[in-house]
Design a protein around this nucleic acid. Structure first.
Length: 397
RNA sequence: UCCUUCUUAGCUCAGCUGGUUAGAGCACAUGACUGUUAAUCAUGGGGUCCCUGGUUCGAGUCCAGGAGAGGGAGCCA
């Protein structure tokens, strides 16, 4: 190690011998040392679409090094946030026997011989002969288990893999993703919103403080508004509106703006509607009080009998980053909703018993971890914020 | 799943109204030069034009089907 004569560096190593531990043939190594159009940029990059096909090598790039480090720090920050608040981490099951939430298509888990399926006398598949003696799937949500834990430990959160077999081909969906689902006893919908907003703000601040160099690198390389956007989220409170107010704003906007889908009370907000609201408030928006018919059965019914205590947090470009609600804690009302929506009551027996045997108001929400990472890294495709993305027709690596 | 654009060298792309040997930049190799760091200069190697079929004397180019990718939408986190 000697003082350097060269510009832009203080020291340099003068090697007496070099040992090659693992050779790399430059003729066939797919990652070039230089990317395209490097003249106008501070840093050089290979196309992300190309790197997606080289998921075994892309962690070696500056970009994925930054993303994976940020991913780690965000994982840690989530545990720290909840631990510091006295929450307990709950390991909800990955294999589940119920499609309770109706959150989407599920992946079947089976050990049956697919080429020789056991049949019942009626000719249907006999799942009694399957490993668990019943139909089982990969989880789409740990919420229901989180709820029963919250009714015991008061404040819990899950943070685990989640699976959706939906044929979704978008830059915002994965078949396998990670979800954070806190659940808190005695929290109402407003406490729930406060917790969610505190958490998001905490996580963004944590990223700026602990991943400064990596965030700055991504800012300089891909999105020069990234750092400014992160600061904006920390500094400004989220707008909070009711679904009804949201529809009013959208209807009003129709005077000067054309929507492909007409905003109408009772219908779900379309992506273009969400985008408009986020632009309208120039930042994250929390929408509450959705019509009961477009939301899940477990959400607490408001006194008006028409809306439920649901809340969605909408982020710029990403859309829904968090979805949550106050839960229906009244046994009779919950049972009525289950029957109304034709959910098999017998599959829900244990969930119903949590209301039957000592209930209390409680609330929670789900945060899509990769969607959080989209926001924090400024990446625009969710397949670039998870090391090994799984999506329709793709489970390589 | 729907709409849309695309698929040509390792990468990014050009290739006209169909025409004979498919090009460029970068990357790579060799040589020269140089306290270099986006080096530079010279030379060179490198192609299943995504796949299948069709039209045609002739298809990278036109037609049909398929596969994959990007963007948008739906489903959602």
């Amino acid at each position: 190690m000697v003082a350097s004569q060269g510009k832009g560096q203080a020291q340099e190593i003068q090697a007496t011998s070099i040992e090659i531990l693992g050779a790399c043939d430059p003729e066939t190594y797919p990652l070039q040392k230089r990317g395209q159009d490097s003249k106008d940029k501070k840093t050089v990059t290979l196309p992300l679409e190309f790197l997606r096909e080289k998921a075994h090598l892309r962690p070696r790039t500056n970009t994925f090094g930054a993303v994976l480090r940020i991913r780690h720090h965000m994982t840690f920050a989530i545990h720290k946030f909840f631990n510091d608040k006295g929450f307990f981490n709950l390991h909800s099951p990955i294999i589940t026997g119920s499609d309770a939430e109706g959150a989407g298509e599920m992946f079947r888990v089976t050990t049956l011989d697919l080429n020789n399926l056991p049949k019942t006398p009626e000719g249907k598949i006999n799942f009694e002969e399957d490993f668990f003696g019943k139909e089982t799937n990969l989880t789409v949500s740990g919420q229901l288990e989180g709820e029963l834990a919250a009714l015991a430990l008061s404040q819990v959160y899950t943070f685990g893999p989640t699976f959706r077999a939906e044929n979704s081909n978008t830059p915002r969906h994965l078949a396998e993703f990670w979800m954070i689902e806190p659940e808190v006893a005695f929290n109402d919908i407003n406490d729930n919103m406060n917790l969610a907003e505190d958490m998001l703000r905490y996580l963004v601040r944590y990223a700026l403080e602990h991943c400064h160099d990596d965030v700055q690198f991504l800012n300089d390389t891909y999105d020069d508004k990234l750092v400014a956007r992160l600061h904006s989220v920390i500094e400004n409170p989220f707008a909070r509106i009711s679904y009804t107010q949201g529809v009013e704003i959208l209807v009003e906007a129709m005077e000067k703006k054309k929507f492909e889908y007409k905003p109408e009370w009772g219908k779900d907000l379309q992506k273009e509607h969400e985008n408009y609201l986020v632009e309208h408030f120039n930042g994250p928006v929390i929408v509450t009080g959705y019509p009961k018919d477009i939301k899940a059965f477990y959400m607490k019914l408001n006194d008006d009998g028409k809306t439920v205590r649901a809340m969605d947090i909408l982020f710029p470009w990403i859309g829904e980053i968090i979805g949550g609600s106050q839960r229906e804690d009244d046994y009779e009302k919950l049972l009525a909703r289950i029957n109304e929506m034709h959910i098999p009551q017998e599959a829900m027996w244990w969930y119903l018993e949590t209301r039957k045997f000592g209930s209390c108001p409680h609330s929670g929400f789900g945060l899509g971890f990769e969607r959080l990472l989209l926001f924090v890294t400024g990446m625009t495709n969710i397949r670039d914020v998870i090391p090994f993305p799984r999506f329709p027709k793709s489970a390589e690596f």
